[in-house]
Design a protein around this nucleic acid. Structure first.
Lengths: 339, 339
DNA sequence: CTGTTAGCGCTTTCAT
DNA sequence: ATGAAAGCGCTAACAG
């Protein structure tokens, strides 16, 4: 019978009911030492009867291990990041660690505050991504607990931490090359938020992709965006208004591509018949747009998984490496051969 | 100067450096009692110097308050649920509580395990959603800590808990009515996963919407789905193959609508010119599909916010009500007048 | 194999 | 206003 305890149940009570000492209860529950089979049964019975649940705080205090891994995300509600969370969760599964998640809302102050909370709760490891923290902040915490960072190039290995970023240049280059290989010669680019490193890296990849095909880089064909849908709508509009014979556009991310596609729809232009589109991120949903979007996949979930594994290994005292999983061009139906 | 402490810093050390007793340090840090201004400065200095950060576990042990709210979600990586998380986070902001999040993977065993972990970590309140737990499980935990449930109809008020669900019937009815008001007479429905209550509620709302317009309910026009994109593709295919003059389809959720829209695209049928589509959920992204999808919005974020607020009020000793925010039809461009 | 003892870091009486 | 002491629930060290 399962009992709902009115008041807090402690080891002592369990011990009393089972007729043993608290230490023995502890030993049985943690498998710390061999115990008489009879007492074991008695204890197990008492635990069930009382509905005993060990107090993690007390345990943490004495063992020095909280069973908590801190996660700092810029935005809890973004599908883009939640995929990473899913990966982290999967990686932690089966381990004695649970993720304590905090959102930094894209600004340094909040991120610092969240970090403080995580550390107060005795997080034994930290996963940080998309952070506005500067390298100093990052190194400060990394000196304190094992830390992995996603999407930033920081040197943390000397502190036993790690950093993981995706190959933006390579991905953008592959995307652009995919376009040139389909015969496109005048290819626009809607750039991401210039405040972020990766926007520049993707722009650079676009340039390289053009060069690979012996095509000139024309700055006029690059318009500013900010990674969000409306900037894709606007950017596409600006590109179209140029009056140049653009037949393909490489968008800094899928959000931008979705915006671009919408602008095209409004003008009665078809994708890919009239204009080809490639995105970046392969966000959930891009497989189901009309037409399904060709995009550069960043394995976010795998990244989360890898970070969790890295931390677990570190917490076991090992010194694992981090390496970001490769980006990959996912070919769908938004690119056609130039007519 | 910000120092990174090599070893754990405790109140005792701070007290020593500041030349006061640990009790005084505690009083200053918590504002528990009046203290001499001079000592206060000394302590604050020592705290800064040593980089002292109170140990939440120790504090929790003595005060009996962990500062943790447990959150059980079926799926961390789903955009649908992450919106609720965003709301919870927002609601908890500024409070001394942090969310400890666990994923139940849509099955009862995992959900029970997660609940156990949350409770071990002394969660003081619980937010549970999309759960496979039965009413008994739910009532058992609710008897233990304040609990709010989203998307299930369980009676928890007698235990000081609450349950919140959206008006699926009303939403579906409004969606269907929107279609009939645009002149559609033969309206299909792709149903959600019949294992979930809400799929039946939405079906029921569809029926009522038909009745409102004096239209007959034809079971042949309802095909099974499971809330996922592929089932939308299949379902739409089956509906089309019926050979009936269907001019509009109400989809059990946006995922399904996206699938349906894809099936239409493949067959060269246009939305909304050839066929009108309405979804449910208004998931992020539905505003940017082509064409933008008309859908029933469930304010997930607001729901998360409301749940967090409910819990905070309860933890303050109040007895708040819960009420789910209203669903609302968001009219976009996937519905046209019947030609 | 098992019980007794001490103590993790903090807050909270209880004196002063 | 402040210090000394006790103790939250648990595990680890030490006897036996």
């Amino acid at each position: 019978m399962n009992v709902i305890p009115k008041r807090r149940v402690t080891v002592r009570q369990v011990a009393q009911v089972a007729g043993v000492s608290p230490a023995t209860v502890s030993r049985i529950l943690n498998g710390t030492a061999a115990v008489d089979a009879e007492k074991r049964r008695a204890v197990e019975q008492a635990v069930a009867l009382l509905g005993y649940r060990p107090n993690a705080a007390a345990r943490s205090l004495v063992t020095g291990s909280s069973g908590i891994v801190g996660v700092l995300t810029p935005d809890l509600a973004s599908p883009y990041y939640s995929d990473v969370l899913g990966g982290i969760e999967e990686g932690l599964e089966g381990s004695p660690y649970s993720p304590l998640i905090g959102s930094g809302h894209w600004n340094r102050r909040d991120e610092q505050r969240v970090l403080d909370v995580l550390l107060r709760h005795q997080a034994e490891g930290l996963i940080v991504f998309g952070s506005s923290l500067d390298e100093g902040d990052l190194r400060a915490v990394a000196g304190h607990v094992p830390t992995v960072v996603l999407g930033r190039r920081v040197h943390l290995t000397d502190l036993g931490g790690g950093a993981m970023s995706f190959d933006n240049v390579g991905g953008a280059r592959a995307a652009t090359r995919h376009l040139t290989q389909h015969g496109h010669r005048v290819i626009g680019h809607i750039m991401g938020d210039p405040a972020h490193e990766d926007a520049h890296e993707r722009l650079h990849g676009y340039r390289l992709g053009l060069e690979d095909a012996g095509l000139p880089f024309d700055p006029a064909l690059v318009v500013q965006g900010d990674y969000r849908v409306p900037s894709g709508v606007l950017g596409m509009g600006r590109l179209l208004d140029l009056g140049r014979p653009i037949t393909a556009v490489f968008c800094a991310n899928d959000q931008t591509a979705i915006g671009a596609r919408l602008a095209l729809y409004r003008r009665g232009l078809r994708v890919p018949d009239d204009l080809s589109l490639v995105g970046f991120d392969d966000q959930p949903g891009s497989a189901y747009t009309t037409p399904p979007l060709t995009s550069v996949r960043q394995p976010m979930r795998e990244a989360g998984l890898a970070m969790a594994r890295f931390l677990l290994a570190r917490l076991r005292g090992q010194s694992p490496d981090v390496s970001a999983p490769q980006t990959e061009l996912v070919v769908r139906e938004s690119v056609a051969r130039r007519r």
